[in-house]
Design a protein around this nucleic acid. Structure first.
Lengths: 238, 238
DNA sequence: TAGTGGTCTAGACCACTGA
DNA sequence: CAGTGGTCTAGACCACTAA
C-alpha cells in the first residue's frame, strides 16, 4: 500500500488542514500566493497546486478566478423537505443572502425544457438567470424556466426577490409537489464564469421540477452550487 | 472573458466527450494510456491529466489506481425517501450488486459516534466496514456503527447480506425515522484505498442516523460514494 | 506596473500491473 | 519485464487583478 508514503502533496495538505483547523486561517481568509507557498513547502507550483486541488475537493478551501485561494466558510444546510426559499434558508442560519439577476426574458424553449415542463415543441418559456451569494461569496448559479401561461407580466416585477413569494403574492400560486434531482458534477462553463471560478470546479447540480397546488407543472430550475457551500439534510419520518 | 480561448485542455475535453457521447468509448471501457493520449493530442502528460481530471469531476470518466482511466457507467438513482437497501435498489435498476465485508468487530466508540448514537463515554460499538460494487465496479465504502445492546450475536451472521433484512428477520427491528446528511467532498484515505482510487478523488459522503419502530437510535453509518455513481432523487409530496 | 493565478512545456524516477 | 499511472522537478509566457 501507499499508507506510509510521505508524499509531498499529503504533507502539504496536512499542514494546511492543521492551520485551518486551529483557526490560524480564518474562514473567508486568503491563503498566501502559490509562489510563496511553494517556496515555503520547498516544492514546485505544480505539486503545490495538486495539494490545493485536493483541499478544494474536500471543500476546505476554494478559489476565485485569478484572485487566489480562500478558506471555505461553513456549509449551509439545505433541506428539500422544508418549503423554504434561498433568502429565508440562509437568514435562518445566521448568514447574509443576496441575489442578482443576470438575465430575464422570454426564450425559445430547449427540447429538454419542453419535455420537463410538458410544453409543446417550439414553445416560448420565461428564462431567469440569477446568481446568489452567502455573506458576499458567490455560491449559486440558477436558471429558472417558467411556463409563461401561468405568469403573465412576470418580467416586470423585481426578480431579485424570492420567486416563491412572487408566485404567491401576485399570482396566487403555491408550490405543491416538487421533484429534486441532485448530482455531484462539475460547474457548467456558464456557471463557472458567473461564479468567477475555474472551469471544471466541483459542484452540486440540483434540478427541481415544481408543481402548484393544482398539481400543474409550473416551472423548473437548474441550480449549480459550489460543492463546498451546502450539505443536504433529509429527515425521513415514520 | 475567456469564452473564446481555445485552451488545449478544453479541446481535449470536448474531443473525449464527443467520443463518449457517440458511443465510440463504451461505459466501463478503458481509455488509451496517458502517454498515447498526450501524443495523440500533441501535448504533455501534465496537460492531458488536467483534462482527464476535469472529465472525472464531471463524472464522465473515472480512474482505478494505477490501472488507468475508464468511462463511467450510468448513475444509480438513490432515493432517501424510499425504504430500500443497496441490493434491492441496484437490482431494481437492472444492475448487479455485490457486497464484501472488510472487517466486523466490537470496537471502542469514537467520541462522535457516541454522541450520535447517544451512548455513554467509552462504550463499545459494533463496527462493520464493507465495500460494495455495481456491475463489478467498486462504488461505495461504508462504515456501520451499531448499538450492541440491540443486536447480540450479530457478528456471527453473514454480513454480506442487507443489514435491513437481518435486523428484521433476526431481531424484529425495523427502521423508523431516518436522518440523512449528504456532503459533496473527497474520499477519505481509507475509502480511497478500499475503492482503489486516487486519494482526494471527489465523493459524496452520506451519513445516516437510523431509529427503529420504537424511535430508538439503533445504528448510524457513513457511506462514501464515488461521486459519479449516483444521483439523489427526492419526491416531495403535498 | 508588479505580482498573481492560469496554462503549458519537457523532461525524470518510482512502484505497480498485467502479460 | 515492458508499460502504466503516480509523483515530482524547473522552468516559461500570458492575461488579469489590485495597488
Amino acid at each position: 500500500m501507499r499508507d506510509e508514503a510521505p508524499r509531498a502533496v499529503t504533507a502539504i495538505c496536512r499542514s494546511l488542514q492543521e492551520q485551518i483547523a486551529h483557526g490560524l486561517l480564518q474562514p473567508g481568509g486568503q491563503l498566501p500566493s502559490e509562489r510563496k507557498l511553494s517556496e515555503l513547502f520547498d516544492t514546485t507550483r505544480i505539486t503545490l497546486r495538486e495539494a490545493l486541488g485536493q483541499l478544494e475537493s474536500q471543500g476546505l478551501i476554494y478559489r476565485e478566478d485569478r484572485r487566489g485561494w480562500f478558506v471555505s466558510p461553513p456549509r449551509i444546510a439545505y433541506n428539500p423537505l422544508v418549503r423554504s426559499h434561498f433568502h429565508a434558508m440562509v437568514r435562518e442560519q445566521g448568514r447574509l443572502p443576496a441575489t442578482e439577476v443576470l438575465t430575464a426574458r422570454l426564450v425559445p424553449a430547449a427540447a429538454d425544457i419542453c419535455a420537463r415542463l410538458g410544453l409543446p415543441a417550439l414553445s416560448g418559456v420565461v428564462q431567469i438567470r440569477r446568481a446568489r451569494r452567502i455573506d458576499g461569496r458567490l455560491v449559486l448559479y440558477v436558471e429558472h424556466y417558467l411556463n409563461p401561461s401561468y405568469f403573465p407580466g412576470i418580467l416586470d416585477y423585481d426578480l431579485t426577490r424570492s420567486l416563491t413569494e412572487l408566485y404567491a403574492s401576485e399570482y396566487g400560486i403555491h408550490y405543491g409537489r416538487v421533484r429534486f434531482d441532485m448530482v455531484p458534477t462539475a460547474l457548467d462553463p456558464e456557471a463557472a464564469t458567473t461564479l468567477r471560478t475555474a472551469p471544471g470546479s466541483p459542484a452540486l447540480r440540483i434540478t427541481r421540477l415544481n408543481r402548484d397546488q393544482h398539481d400543474r407543472l409550473i416551472d423548473c430550475d437548474v441550480e449549480y452550487w459550489r460543492h463546498d457551500a451546502i450539505h443536504v439534510c433529509v429527515e425521513v419520518p415514520e
